[in-house]
Computed example of a mutant assay.
Amino acid sequence: MNQPATTSSALRLPKFVLPAGGCDTHCHILGPVDRFPYADSRAYTPEESDKTVLTALHDRLGVDRTVIVQATVYGTDNRIVLDAIADRPDVRRGVALIDTGISDAQLQTLHDGGIRAVRFGFIRHLWKSPDPAQFRRLMTRIAPLGWHVLLHVDAGTLDELQPMLDTLPVPFVIDHMGRIDTAHGMQQHGFARLIEWSKRDHCWIKVSAIDRLSSAGQPFNDVAPFIRVLLDSSPDRLLWGTDYPHPNPRHPVHDEADLIDVLPLCGDARALQKMLVDNPARLYGFTS
């Protein structure tokens, strides 16, 4: 079971001040379970960390915009994400989990509620990958909505997935930097492929869950050189997220301010402005 979410008031302010409009593009909300019960089919049972906790966290960190990703413990019941977006519709968007058989009317309801993407996994021990033909049809159906697809994949399997990725009718975002491991260095095959894919116009990379990518642990500075390379390669299609409240962490995150303070090591002010503000505003439809 995950550690309980730490109350924001007990923790520090980041040393690095996020630019105005800064966006956390990958975070989750959990509970209250009496209102939003977990799915019976869930693989784990996390502690509650509801929208009030997330709001307090982002207020402390200086995060102005949020993309809430549906937690897998809720399956395809996206009500908890829609509820949180409704509180702050100008500065919140969502990523849904859906079945390939969802109706057009249901897709429109999600869009009207602030959903701008769907998430699918292609990691065999974590996800049941969708049927390829059904997945392709679904991507064609979400394209007119202006959505994209968030892909939870290992960077080392991008070669295997290339035929599918090359023909996607929507942009795709590679989650958590393709789950690279900093212990394997910058020459590892997965990171080399990630750099190559980052140069393609329809591919975006999400810098998130750095506590999972780091081999050293706190303060996670060993991930910064990898992020810097990606920013140099594709500054216009990188996104950033905390992955709060860190389901199944590799290393404990004692304070999200530590994640913020890695950012100045990753790029200059112009590059960070793009990753934190301009890129998510363009992809998720935030306005000034």
Rank of each mutant, 00 (worst) to 15 (best):
D243C: 06
A105L: 11
L18C: 07
G185P: 02
R141D: 07
R193H: 11
S103K: 05
R116M: 05
Q218K: 09
I85T: 10
R282F: 01
N2L: 10
A96I: 02
Q188L: 00
L259M: 13
N248H: 13
R228H: 13
C266N: 04
A183N: 11
Q134L: 14
D211R: 05
V229N: 06
Q106V: 00
C266W: 01
L97N: 10
M177E: 01
I68N: 13
T109Y: 12
P247Y: 06
P130M: 03
A257P: 00
P219T: 05
H26K: 06
F120T: 09
G62F: 07
L82D: 05
P4R: 12
L13Q: 14
D34F: 10
I205F: 00
S103N: 01
R65K: 14
L54V: 12
L161A: 06
S215G: 15
G267T: 03
R270Y: 06
P46N: 09
G185L: 14
D59F: 01
E196Q: 13
G156Q: 06
T66R: 15
P169F: 08
N2F: 03
R250N: 07
V81L: 01
F122D: 03
D83P: 15
F286D: 03
I98M: 03
L265V: 00
R200S: 09
F135E: 04
R65W: 04
N248M: 14
S49G: 15
Y38S: 09
A183Y: 02
D40I: 14
P19W: 08
Q106I: 02
A271H: 11
G146Y: 10
G94V: 08
L18D: 08
D175I: 09
G190Y: 09
Q3E: 15
Q70R: 04
V207R: 07
L11I: 14
D34P: 01
T167N: 11
S8V: 08
L158D: 01
D232N: 14
V173N: 11
Y74N: 01
S234G: 08
E256C: 13
D278H: 10
V170G: 06
F135S: 06
A105I: 11
D166Q: 14
H125L: 04
L168R: 04
L263F: 12
P225A: 14
G22I: 00
I98N: 08
W127S: 14
H184Y: 10
A39C: 14
F226G: 03
H125V: 04
D181W: 08
L213D: 05
C27D: 01
A216E: 15
P46G: 02
K15F: 08
H26Y: 10
T100M: 01
